[in-house]
């Protein structure tokens, strides 16, 4: 118990550090005293003020929020599907959301304007979750079998996205490739508001169900006999995760592996109890993606990398190690 309190104190501390670290580093280094001046007196340097308030701050917030959202969804999918490799990206759900977002983009002239993006993205995510869940419960996939299916699905969806753009918006082709890799640079203020709202609301709802999530990991029979209407709870959780994934993907495309690495780290650190794991992953995901995006912005400046490149490298290596060592992990599946 004490140990968990320490973990959370450190997480919150690290979150603040990440925030300041990300604010300071970038194309133009900002000194801490400059930020202080900016906060104190409004007549600060115009350029500095623009960089901080209009460019850097929104992007940092977006990176923190998306990291938090994707890591939370990873916890939930791993719990419900009882699969330690499940997360929005490896299941192909982010891919479905991306395809939805593209449809929304084409439709944005027809109805609700900008909002058609996150809305269609939400439905894309929802549809692919149910597809994955339906197939997984019918076919009794192994742990890796399901993930293989998800990766295939993801590939298919991305290809469709590129195909549609090549067909209808060839001029935007380059932007779409960046977006598909997971990129935070193109998000607008309106988007950031929508994502922040959805992630915080979504997380609160998921957290309320953390005890159910623990019991769902024991399988359908145990969960039902312990008093959980499993199908209803799962559907509800799918709805909430779709909300998070849909908005995140509509803002930043396919940022992979955050939902895989972060819950694994905290499972190792403080166990599998979702009442700890979920909030820890929420904070840890924010820290992780915040740092990853700062790295992406600065590592080969003046070129800015899409953040998905960084998470892809870290996550890909993690995934690889996991597979090489997978015998040990199989023990948990007898």
């Amino acid at each position: 118990m004490k140990r968990n309190v320490t973990v959370f104190i450190f997480l919150i501390l690290f979150l603040f550090l990440t925030f300041f670290f990300s604010l300071i580093f970038g194309g133009r280094k900002i000194l801490p005293q400059e930020i202080f001046q900016l906060l104190m007196n409004k007549q600060a340097d115009e350029i500095l003020s623009t960089i901080v308030w209009k460019i850097r701050l929104p992007r940092i917030i977006l990176s923190l929020v998306i990291g938090a959202g994707l890591a939370s969804c990873g916890c939930v999918f791993q719990g419900i599907l009882r699969n330690p490799l499940a997360e929005p990206y490896t299941l192909g759900i982010s891919g479905g959301a991306a395809l939805g977002a593209v449809v929304g983009n084409f439709l944005s002239n027809l109805f609700v304007g900008y909002y058609s993006l996150p809305i269609c993205s939400f439905f894309g995510a929802l549809a692919s979750i149910f597809l994955v869940y339906f197939v997984a419960s019918r076919k009794k996939f192994s742990v890796t079998g399901l993930i293989l299916g998800g990766v295939i699905l993801s590939f298919l969806f991305s290809s469709f996205v590129l195909f549609l753009f090549a067909l209808f918006r060839a001029d935007k082709f380059h932007n779409v490739i960046l977006w598909l890799m997971g990129d935070l640079s193109s998000a607008e203020t309106e988007t950031i508001k929508v994502v922040t709202f959805a992630v915080i609301l979504g997380f609160a709802l998921l957290f309320v169900f953390s005890r159910e999530l623990n019991i769902l990991t024991l399988g359908e029979e145990k969960a039902t006999s312990l008093g959980i209407p499993t199908e209803t709870v799962k559907k509800l959780l799918f709805l909430v995760t779709s909300l998070i994934i849909g908005t995140c993907v509509s803002a930043a495309g396919l940022v992979g592996f955050v939902g895989l690495i972060i819950p694994h780290f905290f499972r190792w650190l403080s166990g599998s109890d979702q009442r700890i794991l979920l909030p820890a992953s929420f904070l840890g995901g924010a820290i992780f993606l915040g740092l990853a995006d700062t790295l992406a912005r600065t590592i080969i400046y003046p070129i800015e990398l899409p953040v998905g490149v960084i998470t892809g490298i870290i996550g890909g290596l993690f995934f690889l190690i996991f597979f090489v060592r997978s015998r040990q992990w199989q023990i948990y599946w007898k």
Binding site: L218, G219, G271, S272
Partner: peptide, 11 residues
């Protein structure tokens, strides 16, 4: 139930 499989490490 006849068999319970726990994919994660609970104490």
């Amino acid at each position: 139930p006849q068999s319970i499989e726990i994919p994660f490490s609970f104490t």
